[in-house]
Design a protein around this nucleic acid. Structure first.
Lengths: 345, 345
DNA sequence: TTGTAAGCGTTATCAC
DNA sequence: GTGATAACGCTTACAA
């Protein structure tokens, strides 16, 4: 099996220096000055031997694992169609690579208030946490806060003092609904992206409501349904809405995935989009552009969200200002055919 | 900041035993028998102190990191719409949780023949590797093979001796095409899911070809295009096919994602599905069922694939038979409206 | 059955 | 500038 492990001692021997020096050189320690000659020798020796420091030993001694944890709060059934995960990974890993950090990923069920990720922290397996889909009333989070553990939320949460990166869900939803209003729609239904235990759907619903009020349209609970992340939930809620007999000519669905499900229910009823019902989604997933009809939606910069969140976390880890910051990224409406306005693909 | 760390010494002290005993008890070592009384004391002490072993120390001493690496070979632009990733994670983490293992994830670009993941191995950060999207001519893989490093492929590769979990791509593709043939189609186009440097598209194309031959239909290269994982590639290749003037009444697209792109191109031309062109996809992504029209496709058991792959890896790690095994999972055709046969939703 | 002691491969604190 | 020498917290022969 595998080759005899190369240790820093081997490198030291070959370079004719001590292990200390090897460590100093390879970690590029600033405080102390090492002669360029020695430096060169060490680097070459390491290269020649193909030396790769043992991560465990490094972690034990330095008290830094060089790993961050990405915790996704999701329900099992909603994972399969969660189109965000790949994009989040994309943005995250990009930053991780830059800093030579690793990513441990885990999915925890919101119900199991999981101490699951606390375990990672307690075992010192990770130096910091990125939490996607933070939930109200998560005890573990409180614990992290008390410990002052480096944490960045992808999303937001009131009453906690963590850094976060998010969008202005309320404004974004308002923008989408205002668009429908401007097209002349008066009876606009709404299906949220998730249950109200999450903050995003609550904010998006608030945005919907505000936009209606701004337009002098009464808010009617009968036209509102709660989605649950999945295509199925969109299908069901829309079917339910259609069966309710409440008339409406447009719908704002606060998630493209849920919207695709809703779309399916509409078409199955023999109704046309946008002729009978105009549809606006939220997220601008890649599929939105290729849906039939192409879906007008709010563009959510997921990759950038992930990128900023990880950059923020790295900054904290590097000893940057612990100052808590909240970043809100811009969104914009992408107009396609599903609401019947100017057509773009 | 954080609480004073609890070490195994603390637990030992509280329980009135030595650190050895603590380790023995907590790791549930089989060989040696510890009195239930002692065991109880240790467990309680650990509980009371909230003891969590330091992962780095554990790894250093035991030479096991308790982490497996999931390496996704993907091109940056294809990640965002890669609907497999969430499902793979789902299956994987499920198994990982059972064995109290962690998952480090990384995405490497196929071009960068990345030694990227070798780094993880060399640093002993991971105990084993799950490789999704293995590619022909990956030097790093050869290196792993030489080292006998525990590795399981999600997919397949000739000329290497790794365990693998996959489906019979050729047979599955054949099944899809045979379905089109049975519906009376004679001119059937094909768009692969990926370039031919991957094995799956090559096998699926072979299945397409065989099915045609079985039906006495000549294989015509003019009707074949190569997709590249993405919606865009599907759109482009189908547009190209339509523009070529080669007549065809059906298309087998070896990936649902690519098929959704292709679908968009067809509809945009004013052609109807399945009336003008029947469409069969591959993968059975959640969205397939909710597409317009719903997409007939080959069901790929991704979650199960991931589950079996990780179980296989864990088995190797636990010292199970190093015997190399190749598992092929079953697929089946899911018939929906896009090919005009019996309609299901 | 339990304890002693020797690593595991680094980093970090001091002297030199 | 560079090199001994402790930690770091755990596992694991080997003794007892």
């Amino acid at each position: 099996m595998s080759a005899k492990r190369v240790t820093s001692q081997d490198v030291a021997d070959l370079a004719g220096v001590s292990r200390t020096t090897v460590s100093l050189v390879l970690n590029d320690v600033q405080d102390i000055k090492i002669s360029p000659a020695t430096k060169q020798k060490v680097v070459e020796a390491a290269q020649e031997l193909g030396y790769v420091p043992d991560a465990a030993a490094q972690a034990l001694a330095s008290r830094r694992a060089q790993i961050v944890g990405l915790i996704l709060t999701r329900q099992p059934h909603q994972i399969a169609s969660d189109a965000f995960i790949p994009q989040i990974l994309d943005g995250l890993l990009d930053v991780m690579h830059q800093y030579d950090m690793r990513l441990i990923i885990d999915i925890v069920e919101p119900e199991h208030q999981s101490e699951a990720y606390l375990q990672l922290v307690r075992a010192k397996r990770i130096d910091g946490i990125l939490l996607s889909g933070p939930r109200l009333g998560d005890h573990a989070l409180k614990s992290l806060e008390d410990d002052g553990f480096p944490t960045v939320l992808i999303g937001q949460l009131p009453d906690v003092n963590f850094c976060s990166v998010d969008i202005d869900n309320r404004a974004a939803a308002g923008m989408a609904v205002a668009h429908l209003v401007n097209l002349g729609h008066q009876r606009i239904a709404c299906i949220t992206n998730a249950p109200k235990t999450y903050t995003a759907p609550v904010d998006r619903l608030a945005g919907y409501r505000l936009a209606l009020e701004d337009a002098g349209i009464a808010y009617r609970p009968e036209l509102v349904r709660f989605g649950n992340f999945t295509l199925e939930s969109g299908y069901e809620q829309m079917a339910n809405l259609l069966a309710s007999g409440e008339p409406f000519t447009a719908a704002f669905v606060a998630s493209d995935t849920v919207a695709m499900g809703a779309k399916s229910a509409i078409l199955e009823k023999g109704l046309r989009i946008p002729d009978d019902i105009a549809l606006v989604g939220f997220d601008d997933l890649p599929i939105a552009k290729f849906a039939e009809p192409p879906l007008t939606t709010v563009h959510l910069p997921v990759i950038e969200l992930a990128r900023q969140a990880s950059a923020m976390l790295i900054n904290i880890l590097k000893g940057g200002s612990q100052a808590c910051r909240h970043i809100l990224l811009d969104t914009h409406l992408v107009i396609r055919r599903s609401c019947g306005a100017t057509h773009n693909r």
